[in-house]
Amino acid sequence: MEDTSRREFLKGVATLLVAPTLTAASSRTGKRYAMLMDVDKCFGCMACVVACAAENNVPLGSFRTWIEHVVKPDGTHIFVPKQCNHCDDPPCVPPCPTGATYRTPDGLVLVNDELCIGCGACVKSCPYGARYINPVKGVADKCTFCDHRLREGLLPACVEACPSGARIFGPLHEENELSATVNSRPVQVLKPQTGAEPQIYYLSLPDEVNR
């Protein structure tokens, strides 16, 4: 009798401890997170870059996200936010010798710091220059779509910080602003010739700045 009640008590404690994690994990199951950058709305304020650096402790000189400033021949100034594209067929994953770089079921491409040996193979294999070796941790580093914030039900720091709403984030296959825009308007991706199937979509991206 005493054994049974102890077992039930332990079961209850375990349920309490595991339940929030399971709920957060199950709420992300079957999703495919993506981001949309509206180039017309970005005016290069760098709020996203700063927010990302502050949120993720990005070392000086390296960037999880950055904004490229391009002046077209006609004098038009264009600002293109860039970051890891969390590709569907990520070129950075197969070269990793220890499996430290991996793709989650909800489409995030992440790095397991405990497995990363800092060989730089993934850095060299990313066609977008989105990865770098973190000099403090000695491991590969990149945008995580603020995975730790998603687990709390929050938006990525860069999206939250953008004053003009140039960044739209969400699950691609659900009804939301992101999927509505991607499905209804002509969107572009960076370097489609790589075959990586990037999941950062762009609105109003001129061909000459797609590099």
Partner: peptide
């Protein structure tokens, strides 16, 4: 822990 065999989370061979 070599990445030799493709899986869902680790597609490809290193």
């Amino acid at each position: 822990n070599p990445q030799l065999f493709p899986t869902t989370t680790n597609p490809g061979t290193s």
